[in-house]
């Protein structure tokens, strides 16, 4: 599975919490209320566990986590 699919599955399974929503890679996860304060922390922990990549604190910024597409690009550039 590619990074984008893994991240999309994780968002659907863990962060949508049962809400019926179509998620596109470019969707703003914060404005849609999918990523909240704890959602971001969960996502950071998931990336570390699933991809073995420890996101530096300085990289935990809106621009890298705003959408699945942004996060995929960030991981591709840094892994």
């Amino acid at each position: 599975m590619d990074t984008q699919t893994i991240l999309t599955d994780y968002v659907k399974e863990e962060l949508l919490k049962g809400r019926k929503m179509e998620i596109k890679p470019e969707d703003d996860l914060l404005s849609a209320g999918i990523l909240d304060s704890l959602g971001i922390l969960q996502m950071v922990a998931f990336i570390e566990d699933r991809f073995g990549y420890q996101v530096p604190d300085e990289d935990v910024v809106f621009e890298n986590f705003v959408s699945i597409e942004a996060l995929t690009n960030y991981l591709k550039a840094n892994q």
Binding site: L30, S37, I40, V61, F62, E63, V66
Partner: peptide, 8 residues
Amino acid sequence: FTAFATGR
């Protein structure tokens, strides 16, 4: 979180 949501 609020500071995070502001971006760089």
